[in-house]
Amino acid sequence: MRSADGDHEAFAGVYDALVGPVMGLACRILRNTALAEEVTQDVMIEVWRTADRYRPERGTARTWVLTLAHRRAVDRVRNVQASAERDRRAALLSAGRPVDEVAEAVEGRDERRRVYRCLGRLGSMHRVPLVLAFYEGFTYVEVAQALSTPPGTVKSRMRAGLRLLRACLEDG
């Protein structure tokens, strides 16, 4: 088991453990299965290639991989969407769609329910910037434009929102 295959086997374990959330996140952000598969494969290959950079003292492997996946998916969505389309979507989304998505997500799996419950508790002031940035790939400047809110305010609400989310999730 010390053969070179051992490394590939270990990687297969990493792949199996994390492909679900990586693919799901890419799908949610890109809204296109073929693109999401491409991003998922790119992310997994990057994990393999750069595994040596992972630092356990900074967090779990899972957080490391999902941070990387979010980065890649957001980069991709920014590349594929024309800015005019992004503006339109921002306006549409700020009209309340993220809120509806949260409200609709009552059914479903454990983890999803827990996360959405915590998102729901945030209140729209903190939730909307968080959802637009995380799931739509908007910069805080774009969020500020969409919500007609000063950029500095959006930036601090993103930080406060993540902190509140963390407190809620770690409460169990």
């Binding site: 959330p21 996140l25 979010h70």
Partner: peptide
């Protein structure tokens, strides 16, 4: 943030 990703699995 990683939990937000997990929710989409």
């Amino acid at each position: 943030a990683a939990r937000l990703a997990t929710a989409e699995s």
